[in-house]
Write a protein that binds this DNA or RNA. Structure first.
Length: 181
DNA sequence: GCCAACGTTGGC
DNA sequence: GCCAACGTTGGC
């Protein structure tokens, strides 16, 4: 076995403890989706997807902070089981969400100024499916996640930042290491 | 299906 | 700018 090497979560080692300027540091996020509508297997099937339909300012602002290559936990909400289903990656940074200008869409926003679109989306690609969905109850039990909006009662944020420690803890709880990153 | 919690809307 | 009403989220 890897000995001391294995004791160091690879993602933290590489991206947090390395001598990278903060402006370049890899960021981690969690994206919620209802699997009945679009689940992680759907992302795997299509290979790449525009993360549209976000209509909450705080979530939108997080989308706009994303950089190419940022790592996302894909969370299944409103599901049995609810939890993290896999890892995705930001393939394109924020650009205008086209659905806001589509009158036929449920996400149409007639008040959005075309010259300064109100809503943004990013593109994401699948990276790795979890062996099994990491249930919300398990996530709640992880010390690293105690302060996350995900587990805070009443928070409905659909795009939220994740720390490197939270990411590593989730991966470890899912039985994965971060070598694939 | 229930309902707590929260964000948004719109009258005033 | 207040705040009641309404809609939505999302776990259970």
């Amino acid at each position: 076995m890897g000995g001391a090497f294995a004791l160091v979560p690879r993602s933290s080692f590489r991206f947090t403890l390395c001598c990278m300027p903060a402006s370049c540091a890899l960021q981690f996020w969690l994206l919620k989706s209802e699997p009945d509508v679009f689940g992680y297997p759907d992302l795997v099937r299509v290979g790449r997807e525009a993360w549209n339909g976000v209509r909450n300012y705080q979530a939108r602002n997080f989308l706009r902070q994303m950089r190419e290559g940022d790592v996302c936990l894909f969370y299944h909400s409103n599901a049995k089981p609810a939890g993290i289903a896999g890892v995705a990656r930001v393939a394109r940074t924020a650009y205008p969400d086209d659905l806001q200008f589509d009158p036929a869409s449920a996400y149409f926003d007639p008040a959005s100024p075309p010259q300064q679109p109100r809503w943004s989306m990013v593109d994401v690609e699948p990276v790795r499916a979890f062996p099994a969905v990491l249930g919300l109850d398990t996530i709640r039990s992880l010390p690293e996640w105690q302060d996350s909006p995900l587990v805070r009662k009443g928070t409905r944020l659909s795009v939220l930042p994740v720390t490197a420690e939270q990411f590593d803890a989730a991966l470890k709880a899912a039985g994965l290491n971060a070598d694939f990153l």
